[in-house]
Amino acid sequence: MLISPSQFRMRVLVVDDDPANLEICAAYLAELGHTDVTTAAGAAECLAAVDSALLPFDCLLVDIQMPGLSGIDVTRQLRARPGYERTPILMITARTHESAIKDAFDAGATDFISKPVGLRELRDRIEGAVGLLHEGDRLDTLRAVMNHSDWHDLSRLGFHEPAPLPRTEMLVDFAALQNMVQVKTRLGVMNSSALCFHIENGRTLFDALELRAFVDLLADVADTVIDVMRPMRPTLAYAGRGDFVALLADARSIEGDMIGQAIDAAMTTLHHFAGHAPDLCPRLRVGAMVRPERHDAMAGYDLLARARGAVRRLDAA
């Protein structure tokens, strides 16, 4: 089957210390319609190419294991450069483990491509990265609206949708969290567990509050959950419908009930200091911890949906 060239032509920078891999990637990118390709043989060449470019690159492919600065270190430096805050950065890797994937995502990686690089996978990963970029643009537009006094455009935000919360290392957009789960599952290193925090009165709060106040309240809840779970290094996202979902790399000794008790205590403090009216205080329910099914290599793909379903089963009970 022929691979259709992408309709979105990009200026791409490929970084790898192996000349053969640089040639392969450049050839495949050209076949996909991306003919404006720059190659760099390592971290120093990559950063020099970025700093000397008249226009920012639209996408970067970076080998994760290189002499000197690793691909993760390069990604972290790229994210600190103006114009590269959200540029797709695809990590190229021969083999990796879950902690390295988390470190790369924490540094700002968008996705992973397995070696040897294949044409079809390269096309899928680039198209996926562009899709993530568009979803991020939508939420960034809403974030920008919130920073102005005229923020009526927030009316476009529905209760079922992810909200434009501030991004941090531990708080990400839901699309990015979904992508992280898909990457780990695709690479066969999905050992993370998921936990859902459901705001029981979320719909009531959404209807009662102005949208900006509702988003601010969600941000307060996110900060509270992260403060409690910080030692576990969670990656948290707001999925919509009052659901926060946390991905935990190592939750073998953690129980949802124990986390729930700590969250309840922290929420009481939040209500006290934030001055929320009693009827506008969020009530959080913590679902059961959901772990990947060891016998099913594809089960990780629905991990977040299973976590959200688990908290709703508690509601039904």
Results as ranks from 00 to 15, higher is better:
143 R>A: 00
144 A>Y: 11
144 A>M: 12
145 V>G: 04
147 N>R: 15
149 S>Y: 15
151 W>M: 15
151 W>T: 12
152 H>Y: 15
154 L>T: 03
154 L>Q: 03
155 S>N: 12
157 L>I: 05
157 L>F: 08
158 G>T: 13
158 G>F: 08
158 G>R: 14
159 F>M: 04
159 F>K: 04
160 H>G: 11
162 P>G: 06
162 P>S: 09
164 P>H: 05
165 L>V: 05
165 L>G: 02
166 P>Q: 12
168 T>W: 06
169 E>I: 15
169 E>L: 13
169 E>Y: 13
171 L>D: 01
171 L>C: 06
173 D>H: 12
174 F>A: 10
174 F>I: 00
179 N>I: 09
179 N>P: 10
180 M>A: 09
182 Q>C: 15
184 K>H: 11
184 K>C: 11
186 R>H: 11
188 G>N: 07
189 V>N: 09
190 M>R: 05
192 S>R: 04
193 S>T: 09
193 S>W: 03
193 S>E: 04
193 S>F: 01
194 A>V: 07
194 A>E: 02
195 L>Y: 08
196 C>N: 07
196 C>T: 08
196 C>R: 04
197 F>K: 02
198 H>C: 10
199 I>F: 02
199 I>D: 02
201 N>M: 06
203 R>N: 07
203 R>A: 10
203 R>P: 02
204 T>C: 10
205 L>I: 10
206 F>W: 14
207 D>L: 14
208 A>T: 13
208 A>M: 12
209 L>W: 09
209 L>I: 05
211 L>Q: 10
212 R>E: 10
213 A>Y: 07
213 A>D: 11
214 F>R: 05
216 D>E: 12
217 L>V: 03
218 L>V: 00
218 L>Q: 01
219 A>E: 14
219 A>I: 09
220 D>N: 14
221 V>W: 03
222 A>D: 04
223 D>R: 14
224 T>C: 15
226 I>C: 07
227 D>I: 07
227 D>V: 11
228 V>F: 06
229 M>G: 04
229 M>A: 01
230 R>L: 13
230 R>K: 13
231 P>S: 04
233 R>M: 12
234 P>R: 02
234 P>K: 08
235 T>L: 12
236 L>M: 10
236 L>C: 04
238 Y>R: 01
238 Y>C: 02
239 A>E: 02
240 G>V: 08
242 G>K: 07
244 F>H: 05
244 F>P: 03
244 F>A: 00
245 V>Y: 05
248 L>R: 03
249 A>F: 06
249 A>G: 11
250 D>S: 14
251 A>I: 06
252 R>Y: 15
253 S>I: 11
256 G>F: 01
256 G>R: 00
256 G>V: 01
256 G>Y: 03
257 D>K: 12
257 D>C: 07
258 M>N: 09
258 M>K: 12
259 I>P: 00
260 G>I: 03
261 Q>E: 14
263 I>T: 08
263 I>N: 06
263 I>G: 03
264 D>L: 11
